[in-house]
């Protein structure tokens, strides 16, 4: 469930960017990696854990903004495949810079509230797992409030629904898409901060996360935020079950089997948009 929550965040970031700019951002996993890595180095340099975490989230958000302004926006009119390749290139670049500026080792963070597991009805639970669940829930609630209560959130939804109409209405769609990249990078980084005490992180951790987040987004129905969250949780559970009942060696294959099954049997995913058009 903990892993699933992280996949859910990655998938959510994916969905945000996909909705606001039609880009499938395969650099999404790098934000998670940056979240963990920058926090570790900040913490190692003597910053309090919380400050280091905030710093990491800001760094990731800035990287997200630069990714949009320098790589995606200039190629606005390119085909989706070209844009995907650009994001893959960007992800390799971010990984490379991280490996050089920081390092190539595995790192962990101390758990926020100790390592003493507690037992609920026969199941043992790490405090950090609860932190992850709690943190993910907070992110979801904050995002939901932003989308449903603020005009800025509405303009993001409007841009996602119809970009040209949004421009004609007077919405600054470039600023909106920048916001989407920043928010989604920050969400990814929060995921990284929360998960690193359990899962460890290193410069190359983002690739697999991006692919699994993509699988979760596809499972939930590309473009649907609720679907992304459910898809992430379901994918996390499937992985754990397969590790438990089959072999943990096949764990990583689950995500890809899920992608194939979803695409073959229900291409719209669990919560895919029912396309209704009124004439």
């Amino acid at each position: 469930m903990t892993v699933g929550a992280i996949y859910a965040l990655v998938a959510l970031g994916f969905t945000l960017i996909y909705n606001s700019s039609d880009v499938a951002n395969f650099a999404q996993g790098e934000f998670v990696m940056l979240g963990g890595m920058v926090t570790f180095f900040g913490y190692a340099a003597g910053l309090p854990l919380f400050v280091a975490a905030v710093l990491a989230i800001v760094v990731a958000a800035v990287v997200g903004l630069l990714l949009y302004r320098l790589a995606i926006e200039p190629a606005r009119r390119a085909s989706p495949v070209t844009l995907i390749i650009i994001t893959i290139g960007a992800s390799i670049f971010i990984r490379g810079v991280t490996a050089i500026v920081l390092d190539k080792n595995f790192h962990s963070l101390p758990s926020f509230f100790g390592n003493e597991p507690f037992v609920i009805g026969g199941a043992t639970l790490l405090p950090q797992s609860l932190v992850v669940m709690f943190g993910v829930s907070l992110v979801l609630i904050a995002l939901w409030l932003f989308m449903s209560r603020t005009l800025r959130g509405k303009s993001l939804l409007a841009t996602a629904a119809n970009r040209t109409a949004a421009q004609l209405t007077g919405i600054n769609t470039r600023a909106v898409t920048s916001t989407a990249f920043v928010i989604s990078a920050a969400i990814g980084a929060i995921g990284g901060v929360l998960a690193t005490p359990i899962t460890l992180t290193y410069y190359d951790a983002g690739t697999l996360l991006a692919l699994k987040g993509f699988a979760a987004a596809v499972l939930g129905g590309m473009g649907n935020p609720l679907g992304a969250v459910v898809g992430g949780l379901v994918l996390g559970l499937l992985e754990q079950f397969s590790a438990g009942y089959l072999s943990s060696q096949y764990k990583d294959a689950v995500a890809f089997i899920v992608i194939l099954l979803v695409l073959f049997t229900m291409p719209q995913g669990l919560f895919g948009a029912k396309s209704v058009e009124r004439v």
């Binding site: 409007a158 119809n162 421009q167 004609l168 007077g170 919405i171 600054n172």
Partner: peptide
């Protein structure tokens, strides 16, 4: 840019209505 033109006083009702259907 388009949103500046709206702010300065040119609004358009586009062909096919183009309202934000999910909102």
């Amino acid at each position: 840019r388009p949103h500046v033109r709206v702010a300065k006083g040119i609004a358009q009702v586009p062909e096919g209505r183009q309202i934000f259907t999910p909102l």
